[in-house]
Amino acid sequence: MLELKNVYKTFNPGTVNAKTALEDLSLTLNEGDFVTVIGGNGAGKSTMLNAVAGAFSVDAGTITIDGQNVTGLPEYKRAAFIGRVFQDPMMGTAATMQIEENLALAARRGQRRGLRWGIKRMEREDYRELLRTLDLGLEDRMTTKVGLLSGGQRQALTLLMAALKRPKLLLLDEHTAALDPKTAAKVLALSDQIVEENGLTTLMVTHNMRDAIAHGNRLIMMNGGRVVLDIAGEEKKRLTVEDLLNRFTAVGGEMPSDRTILG
């Protein structure tokens, strides 16, 4: 479903601030894969997700989604295949627009936006049903400005929006890192549910090893801008945090921060 082939990316090349973020990165995701991504700071996790989403162009290599080479496609065109949830809850929604308007924007992802009315009456009913599944009471506040919602509510809404068009690929970039533990657990459970219901191919970056082990069918660890560990199937199910740390040290990885271990 997703294929990254020998991808390179250096930020600020030719300056003292030059930073190689991705180095000969290759990764293939099969349809329906739910891959969790871990690694220390600067390992290239978020850079990889942003490269896939098209936030910047890569220096070399190809990115293919469902057989289509998207390497040269601008971010807004790739959005037709991709649903995204960001780390910052403020980033995934338009604060000054209503809940239903945000959903209507997401419902038109990948379509030409013309001079038809921005939201149809029939859509509203669909959105109401959809919001009801969140169990946050948002179905009764559909015309509320999103800026008035809490961070957790906004992430939940962003998840709904990301999955609304059944994207070929769902990118979750530490989307629970800015939430309190209880809300984070809720949003993670919701992510699991949405991924499963829609059978979405998913890449989820997380700082938390326990979460990385508990979710998804496959786990990759990144270091120095490439994948250094790739664990799937039965092996992943038996994985413990200790195993993971040992294997990470074995492949010469930098020890992740305390927060990652204790997380």
Binding site: M91, A94, R108, R113
Partner: peptide
């Protein structure tokens, strides 16, 4: 509406294909 979204949050707008 997509212009309003662009003004409200550029990164969100692009992620929604705008």
């Amino acid at each position: 509406a997509s212009i309003r979204a662009t003004g409200a949050n550029r990164s969100m707008a692009r992620a929604q294909g705008i």
